[in-house]
């Protein structure tokens, strides 16, 4: 019973994923939404590393690293967009930003 099983790690990652999803759905402040998104990326990475450890196969880690890089790039772009929105609307509430004229 003490040995670490794969499905326990997977369930933890799934729970983290759902918490991230909840964050994205309910948060009004778009930066908090981005944070929820980052949580989901993390959950995915934990899954990949778990498979790499239990399989044991190296590709899991390599995919996790690529995932890491893409997540970093994505959040950089997300923040840039949010800042330009903030400059136009003076607030970043997700409800307030619904016109397309920009």
């Amino acid at each position: 019973m003490y040995q670490l099983e794969l499905h326990s790690v997977l369930s933890v990652a799934a729970l983290l994923f759902c918490i991230g999803l909840y964050g994205v759905l309910t948060r009004r402040n778009s930066i908090a939404m981005l944070m929820g998104l980052e949580l989901m990326f993390n959950a995915v990475n934990i899954n990949l590393v778990a498979f790499a450890h239990f399989l044991p196969h190296l590709d899991g880690i390599i995919l996790a690293m690529f995932g890491l890089a893409v997540a970093a790039a994505e959040s950089a772009i997300g923040i840039a967009i949010i800042l330009s929105i903030y400059r136009n609307f003076r607030h970043i509430d997700t409800d307030g930003i619904n016109e397309l004229k920009g």
């Binding site: 790690v9 981005l34 980052e38 790499a52 450890h53 880690i61 959040s75 923040i79 949010i82």
Partner: peptide, 28 residues
């Protein structure tokens, strides 16, 4: 990650996520 047997990923995560992405989010 360190516990799951790949310290390389743990150090990378610390470097990229905590060092870069989190700092950027805090800046934002």
């Amino acid at each position: 990650y360190a516990l799951l047997g790949c310290p390389f990923m743990a150090a990378l995560q610390l470097l990229v996520y905590v060092g870069a992405i989190a700092t950027m989010l805090l800046f934002a």
